[in-house]
Design a protein around this nucleic acid. Structure first.
Lengths: 221, 221
DNA sequence: ACCAAAGTGACAGTGACTGTCAACCGACTG
DNA sequence: CAGTCGGTTGACAGTCACTGTCACTTTGGT
């Protein structure tokens, strides 16, 4: 029965109709997307100003002029207000074509550039969200769960397409390690004061892993 | 004020005195460790039987003959009852010596074997906890947060010791990718019905990453 | 205009989590 | 062995995240 799940982070409620282009067609969806953006904006500002714990979902709802019910419908959890990322859907939509033309690691590299560019457009927003990410444990947990689900989704795509040169099991491991590396890079980027080179950090991380792992240091004994 | 943090997972309350050998010295600590083990055992059984959501912390406390306050003091959150792992402290304690004698990836490999052996001793318990891990999103989130903190801790150790051939930044990325790979392997192990070869799966994962990442596929264009 | 479907807000209820405080117990002092 | 000191425990009260439900409204198609 009642229990604080903290979970349905990846339940992108707007994903229903299966979008293709940049701007959705339905007027209904557009309004929803707009409302979500406004609510998230308001929430992040309140969280940064007064502290995540000190702001209740009800306050966010009031400030955004919607009911608490709607906040939960849209974002699932309080943490979802911060970690929900509209660009995730874009990446997921683009992934198949990337994977059709490149090998896994290269496709990941390209996807990273794309996503990074999106985030670079509103870097200040990205900074605010990242600050909350590393400041509030429960937000980080929710974000990591999202990353985990993304890993799974990408591994599925990578192992199901035509050019798939990995089994699902292998793809999962490779994507998992890539995501792990990027997460670490994000952490380092945050520790360094979040300068403008976020994407470069992440790409560099992939390169670092490549180097460290390619050293032929077999299992000992 | 008042907020379900889901966080202090890595707060090993029993770690206070800085243990060295296998069995702690203080009688007080021993009782605490024993109580924690009993509580966790009871909790996991109840969760598996009735479902995580259907069992309240109060019920766990009652079944384990302690107060709810104590449960929270020991495990921090309801999820902590599942994800808390006594072996983590062991790994953390052993890591410095491993890192002093081997390079990062090799040390990780060895640590994996050790930890894996510990878990192999009570494989059924490990299976039960893993099942809950992948069944209940909030538990997975808590576990991922723990893994993240472990990553950080290991990266620190790897970059601070004498033999450190990585900066903290590099070590963090490498460990991050290794942990990511192992997590993916764990997921795959679960999907395959959790046979006896858990450790081998994880080691294989590291090898897979090594191979996938060593392919000289530089950034395109 | 009419209708079916989907979205919205109001409401009540559960339980996870926090902070506090008095009672208590194990560990060292003389 | 008595004393006492620091940390541990359990009781209690309070907050709020989250769930389920339902009447009401809005939207998109006829």
């Amino acid at each position: 029965m009642g229990e604080q799940v903290h979970a349905p982070v990846t339940a992108y409620p707007a994903q229903a109709g299966g979008e293709t282009g940049a701007t959705p067609a339905g007027l209904r969806e557009r309004k929803k997307a707009l409302a979500m953006r406004r609510i998230q904006q308001v929430a992040i500002e309140l969280f940064e100003r007064d502290g995540f714990a000190a702001v209740s979902v009800e306050q966010v709802a009031e400030a955004a002029e919607v009911s608490p019910s709607s906040v939960y419908r849209y974002f699932g959890t309080k943490e979802g207000l911060v970690v929900h990322d509209e660009h995730d859907a874009v990446l997921l939509a683009l992934a198949p074509s990337l994977l059709a033309e490149h090998d896994l690691v290269t496709a990941f590299d390209l996807g990273l550039r794309l996503i990074g560019a999106e985030h670079g457009i509103d870097l200040e927003r990205t900074r605010r969200r990242t600050r909350l990410w590393f400041t509030v444990p429960s937000i980080r947990a929710a974000g990591l769960l999202m990353a985990d689900e993304m890993t799974d989704a990408l591994a599925h795509l990578a192992s199901s397409g035509p050019r798939a040169d990995h089994t699902f099991s292998q793809a999962r491991v490779v994507v998992g390690s890539l995501v792990g590396a990027v997460m670490a890079a994000l952490h380092q980027w945050y520790d360094d004061g979040m300068p403008e080179d976020m994407v470069d950090r992440m790409l560099e991380a992939v390169a670092t892993v490549r180097q460290a792992m390619s050293r032929p240091t077999g299992p000992p004994q």
